[in-house]
């Protein structure tokens, strides 16, 4: 037995409430982050990720109280991302009870923030989110670039080079989202996942496109991911975390049961 591959449910939080409808029949308030996190812990989630999608700056601090409440009751690792721009943002989230903080757009526009944050709080707390999309034409050698603004704007930065740079800058882990798969339910972009995973020494979390349990297994077996993240397949009650683990274990993937 060795290190288990992790399964991480991801929750979008807007102004302190879970959005995109989590449908657990026995949860009275599916919008309550604490209830949902508790439920995922009971199902055997290895970590939980909150993505703060709060647009209004007036409500930005609500994520801190969400993190405080969840960290007081759910004792598994908690990653929080979304809108993290400065080392102070990172510290505030960690002080509220987050174990890891995801940095996305800020890293693209100011890579030094990753370096500064890792120096200050340690690499193990810093997850750099990479949103990548295929830019090569069909039949050509695969090439992916970093996109911002929800996959609408390219930066011209090569995704594999960027992953290596972020690892050099002190990221402890990469959360890789294949933007051409996100929301499609067609599975991870496996060549992209494999290319990034092979290119860096740090763990890679695959994200974007999961529609069934085999997609999770493929992320590990073919994509070489150390962890797999999904949102909708867990939220809508199609599958539980324990279903996912049983499915992966049956294919020889080591999971925490």
């Amino acid at each position: 037995m060795g290190l288990a591959k992790r399964i991480i449910p991801c929750l979008d939080v807007d102004a302190g409430r879970v959005v995109k409808g989590v449908k657990f029949v026995d949860i009275r308030d599916a919008g309550d982050p604490v209830s949902v996190a508790r439920r995922y812990n009971e199902e055997g989630a290895d970590e939980i990720t909150f993505l703060d999608i709060t647009a209004s700056s007036d409500n930005r601090d609500t994520i801190l109280s969400v993190v405080e409440q969840v960290a007081s009751e759910v004792f598994i690792p908690l990653t929080v991302g979304g809108g993290v721009r400065t080392v102070a943002d990172v510290r505030n989230l960690l002080n509220a009870g987050a174990d890891k903080v995801g940095i996305n757009t800020a890293a693209v526009f100011n890579p030094d923030v990753v370096k500064q944050a890792a120096d200050k709080v340690g690499s193990q707390c810093i997850v750099v989110s990479i949103d990548a999309k295929t830019v090569s034409s069909e039949g050509d050698t695969d090439r992916w670039e970093i996109f911002t603004h929800g996959g609408r704007k390219t930066t011209g930065i090569d995704a594999v080079e960027w992953a290596q740079k972020m690892a050099d800058y002190g990221a402890g882990e990469l959360l890789l989202t294949s933007m051409d798969r996100d929301g499609t339910k067609q599975g991870f972009n496996l060549p992209l996942t494999k290319a990034i995973s092979d290119a860096v020494e740090i763990p890679v979390i695959a994200s974007g496109g999961v529609g069934n349990l085999q997609h999770l297994a493929d992320g590990v077996l073919q994509g070489g991911a150390d962890a797999v993240l999904a949102a909708s397949i867990f939220h809508f009650g199609e599958y539980s975390i324990s279903d996912a683990k049983a499915h992966m274990a049956a294919q020889g993937i080591e999971v925490r049961l």
């Binding site: 882990e173 020494e201 962890a227």
Partner: peptide, 20 residues
Amino acid sequence: APLTNSANQRLKVPHMGWSP
């Protein structure tokens, strides 16, 4: 590095996650 498990699969650093 290089760090591998008993099945000769590459192990990442940091060691992050659930181990027995």
